[in-house]
Computed example of a mutant assay.
Amino acid sequence: MANILIAGGGIGGLAAALGLAGRGHRVTVLERRESFTELGAGIQLGPNAFHALDLLGVGAQVRDRAVYIDELLLMDGTTDEPIASMPLTGDYRARFGNPYAVVQRSDVYEPLLEGCRSHPRIELRGGRRVVGYEQRGQGSGEVIAVLSDGERLSGAALIGADGIRSDIRRQLVGDGDPRVSGHTIYRSVVPVEQVPEELRWNTVTLWAGPKWHFVHYPIGGGALMNLAATRDNGARTAVVGQPAGREHVLDEFPELGATPRRLLELGRDWKAWVLCDRDPVDTWTDGRVALLGDAAHPMLQYAAQGACQALEDAVVLAESLDCCEDTVVQRLEKYSAARRERTARTQLVAREIGRRLYHPAGEAARERDAMLRSLSPGGMYDEVAWLHGVDLG
């Protein structure tokens, strides 16, 4: 089988490595950081993510770390009144075949990393940033990964899983810097014992307001509470993990009602990000090079599908490359064709969710409330079936 290079050792890159090695390929993962670690706090995993994790062989390990929540709850962040809820237990799990859960990013990353480290056909190399690639004609059977220190490595294929600011995408697509959304998100994680018992809800709760929203849910096996507050403040410069003072964060959300205010006040050591994404593109491949995860389809967090879609990518990529080295080019194109429409829809829906569901004001907010309140649980499941249901191309 083929020797495949992967640029990027995040969730998507490691998932791709496991999937490809499971098909008999030799895989080298090239990570720009010296060590393989995953930063970030809480993420949500839909049933489609668990389906992919099971196919990659790490579903049980992630399930052991996950918190299985009872419902997705949308609240009016100014009045403390409920707007709508989507139950996530019996009927939901029966329909979609898997649970909905929340985890720390490390709860997904570490099982993937352990699987890669124990696999005889996977090599993990830290401190190796891939800055570009060269090809010697599609028929040569070789692509060259060019590293930042000048080293060159050859393989039958190169997978760019190097994130939203991907060097591989820069060469392959050439669409410049990511799109700055104008939304700033502040994140904090607090021990659950600091949360009043009456506020320890086993839900993903979103408090919606005009041009802002606040989300909280348990992670770390229920030992921690993840807090994330987002403001549509017109930010135009990308910010990544910048410390933010507690008083500044509280001042950004003066309209919060009494209950969400109590939770927001618990946050300490806040960090800020200005959210970015990109427009969908049709071109994911260039000969023996293909994109995956945030390098292919970076999206806003509002659909809670970034990691889920990267995991799906990994499964479809492995299935597409389940054959011979001399058909790699065609099989990468097959992978891209299988994934483009679904991920593009998810990217655009994530933007629309922020605008229409999380941040409206006045009459637009009243229309949202009426629409959501008209839906039964089954009707809500119909709305998310295309996304939460299994669709691996």
Rank of each mutant, 00 (worst) to 15 (best):
I6E: 13
G9N: 08
L20H: 05
E31G: 03
E34W: 00
E34N: 01
S35K: 15
F36N: 05
T37V: 15
A41E: 11
I43Y: 07
I43A: 04
I43T: 06
G46D: 09
P47S: 01
A49T: 10
L55C: 00
L55Q: 08
V58M: 10
G59W: 11
G59F: 03
D64N: 10
D64K: 11
R65C: 01
V67H: 01
I69F: 00
D70Q: 10
L73K: 00
L73A: 09
D76K: 01
T78V: 15
T79C: 08
T89I: 11
R95C: 02
R95P: 06
V102P: 03
V103A: 02
D107E: 15
E114N: 14
R121N: 07
R121F: 00
G127Q: 14
G132N: 10
E134R: 13
A157Y: 07
L158Y: 06
G160Y: 09
D162E: 09
R165N: 14
D167H: 12
I168R: 05
Q171C: 04
R179I: 14
V180D: 07
S181P: 07
L199D: 08
L199F: 09
R200T: 02
W201I: 14
T205G: 00
G209I: 11
P210S: 06
P210K: 07
W212G: 02
H213N: 05
F214N: 03
L224N: 01
M225R: 05
M225F: 01
A244K: 06
V249P: 00
V249I: 07
L250R: 12
R262A: 12
R268P: 03
D269G: 02
D269Y: 03
W270T: 10
A272F: 05
V274G: 02
V274M: 07
D279R: 11
T285F: 00
G287L: 13
A290N: 06
A290G: 03
L291T: 05
A304T: 11
G306Q: 04
L311W: 02
A314R: 06
A314Q: 10
E319I: 12
C323E: 11
C323K: 05
C323P: 04
C324K: 09
R342M: 01
A350C: 03
R351M: 12
R351A: 14
I353W: 04
A361I: 11
A365W: 11
R366I: 14
R366M: 13
R373C: 09
G379P: 05
G379V: 13
Y381K: 12
V384P: 04
A385C: 05
H388N: 08
V390I: 15
G393H: 01
